[in-house]
Amino acid sequence: MSEPTGVIHDIGYQRYTGPRLGRRQVFGALYLHGVRTTFGLGRSAKAKIFPWLVVGIVFTFAATLTAIRAQIGEMILTYAQFADNMSWLVIFFVAVAAPELVSRDLRSGVLPLYFSRPLPRADYPLAKLLALVTALWMLLGAPQLVMFLGGAFTADGMREVWDELLDLLPALLYAGLWAVVFASVGLLVASLTGKRAFAAGGIVAVFLMTTPIVGTLSILPSTAVNQLAGLASPSTLVQGVGIWALRDLLVTDPDAGLSGLGPFGPVYALAAVALVAGCVTLLLARYRKVAAR
């Protein structure tokens, strides 16, 4: 008869003497956790449905555009226009992802557990913001990469591929602008309430309810007001900056609605910067208050 060889010992509590990571790595961990959360990774199956539905739609759209282009040899949408056309989906994506990122933590009261840990107070909202920006940028940028690859494989020679790339890169920056503006506005709204439904409604309201204001302003009998109308809504603000910065890539149809910015292009750019800066400032102030509670 053999003696039992494996014996389980209760070795009691073990002190930890290994490395403790610094602020940068902790921020990175929180950021990656946030990116995963926006796509429902590491979450329940229910939380995955909506993000992946949106991802599916944008990629199907990009694949269709690529296929059409390969067939008839004509580009229906430029890379930059792709981002514009996807803006509605982005709004809904933000309305789901931003509350998922911040409202859930507010509601469950888990924040004291974060703020009693070494990471500085501002790191929590900034990591979440960066995560949402990344998710949105990937959502808008990755399909453009698919379109680019499709275009590159059907191109004749390196010259055309290079031209294609020169079209793509500004469009990716433009997608980044969409991501930054939508993420900062969306996250600020979501951070105001612990109720996810309210947060989602608030985000949709901010983005969609401001559109009629733009519509009204753009038909007032004053050219300057018409040209500045786009400032009233985040979506048209971003489009305005895009039209000003990369005109040819965005406006292929000279009769397009919002192409008339007049001399106010830089105003749009400044307004976008101010909007993002304002939202981030308010977001940090909001979390200063939350942390002290």
């Binding site: 930890y16 290994g18 490395p19 403790r20 990571l21 610094g22 790595q25 902790v26 961990a29 929180l30 956790h33 590491g42 979450r43 329940s44 859930r104 933590d105 469950s108 009261g109 888990v110 924040l111 004291p112 557990l113 974060y114 009693s116 840990r117 070494p118 990471l119």
Partner: peptide, 27 residues
């Protein structure tokens, strides 16, 4: 903390692991 502070949809292991990382522990 005194009050309820646990997100209901995470498992205990996931939550404690995540918070351990927030305290600077490697993955």
């Amino acid at each position: 903390p005194e009050h309820d502070c646990l997100p209901p949809d995470l498992s205990g292991a996931e939550l404690v692991t995540h918070l351990g990382r927030m305290s600077g522990l490697p993955r």
